[in-house]
């Protein structure tokens, strides 16, 4: 997502050196200084034109949504989760789904390399309708940063069924870098926008493992098994 590039800094330093040299040579003679000033003004106006012509839709990440919308979504999501209405959950919350054929009587669930125990909660649910199948679903009700969904950039765990053991392996460390432009402070003063917002992101995620009813579960203590 990010690559720190030294090229623009080197270019800008070179530009500054050139400008300093030009300023020195101008010797503050009126006409040349005026040309220099109008040259700078033209550069700024050109930058503004280029900025508005740049395809920002492609450069920006995701779409805007509000905090209130997120709270509403979260309420609805957990209500359906708690009442077992998994089929009613908005399909857009499903980031990944793993389906495995399973005909055993006992299932062992292990966390392969989970270092952060609080990373993502895992819950096992027995489903009456489910036959000879184990389904693991990674739900995320809109991970929002500054009101924008970044779900597509997130690394997810890998889940695999080996014989009667379901193994959940967390992904390699993943650091995502984003950038955001803010208005200059006299403008923020009136719009109420903050340079550093109090809340930058809201996300709620959970892995639900659906097993056929009657299968006995042996799981790590971090995994919650619904009775």
């Amino acid at each position: 997502m990010s690559s720190f590039n030294l090229v623009p800094i080197i270019i800008l330093i070179a530009v500054l050196l050139i400008i300093s040299s030009i300023v020195g040579r101008l010797n503050n003679s009126g006409k040349k200084v005026r040309w220099f000033f109008f040259g700078y003004l033209s550069l700024l106006v050109l930058s503004a034109i280029v900025y508005f012509l740049l395809p920002m839709e492609e450069t920006q990440v995701g779409q805007m949504s509000t905090h209130e919308e997120f709270l509403e979504e979260m309420d609805e999501f957990y209500q359906k989760l708690n009442t077992g209405e998994l089929d009613e959950i908005d399909p857009s919350y499903v980031l990944e789904r793993w389906e495995f054929a399973f005909d055993g009587d006992a299932l062992s669930i292990e966390l392969g390399n989970q270092e952060d125990l609080n990373a993502v909660p895992i819950e096992v649910v027995a489903v009456e309708e489910l036959q000879q199948e184990v389904i693991a679903t990674y739900y995320q009700n809109s991970s929002h940063l500054l009101g924008i969904s970044i779900a597509e950039y997130l690394s997810l765990p890998s889940i695999d069924l080996k014989h009667t053991t379901l193994e959940i392996i967390e992904p390699a460390p993943n650091e995502l870098y984003f950038s955001s432009f803010k208005s200059t402070f006299p403008f923020r003063q009136y719009s109420g926008e903050k340079l550093m917002p109090d809340d930058i992101g809201y996300s709620s995620e959970i892995i639900i493992i659906q097993v056929p009813e009657g299968v006995s579960i042996e799981a790590d203590e971090q995994i919650y098994v619904r009775e």
Partner: peptide, 29 residues
């Protein structure tokens, strides 16, 4: 000029830095 210089900053950032840009700024009236 200081307001226009912000566009110079933005253009340099957008053209030379491979960042994921988000929420360019809150809309102002």
């Amino acid at each position: 000029t200081s307001l226009l210089a912000v566009y110079l900053l933005k253009v340099v950032m957008l053209l030379f830095f491979d960042h994921g840009w988000m929420a360019a700024s809150q809309e102002i009236s």
